[in-house]
């Protein structure tokens, strides 16, 4: 039961983080379309790092 609550919290946190990353990246691309490739790569890397964190927490909590 507590595991599930914890997982939910992790997913909420991760979701907020990913949303921030994605949203800001979109803003950045809209502002500077010529830098889209670089922004995308950086976005994926940061997203992956966040994902690793969230998965780590999920697995440790399980």
């Amino acid at each position: 039961m507590y595991n599930l609550i914890g997982a939910g919290l992790i997913v909420i946190g991760g979701g907020i983080g990913l949303g921030q990353i994605g949203g800001k990246a979109m803003e950045g691309i809209a502002r500077q379309p010529e830098a889209a490739g670089k922004i995308q790569t950086a976005m994926i890397i940061i997203g992956a790092l966040l994902e690793g964190l969230a998965f780590g927490a999920l697995i440790l909590g399980k």
Binding site: A48, L49, E51, G52, L53, F55, G56, L58, I59
Partner: peptide, 14 residues
């Protein structure tokens, strides 16, 4: 240590 740990967890979990 957490760098490779996150690498392995990410791939596995995905």
């Amino acid at each position: 240590l957490t760098k490779p740990f996150s690498l392995l967890i990410r791939l596995f979990a995905n």
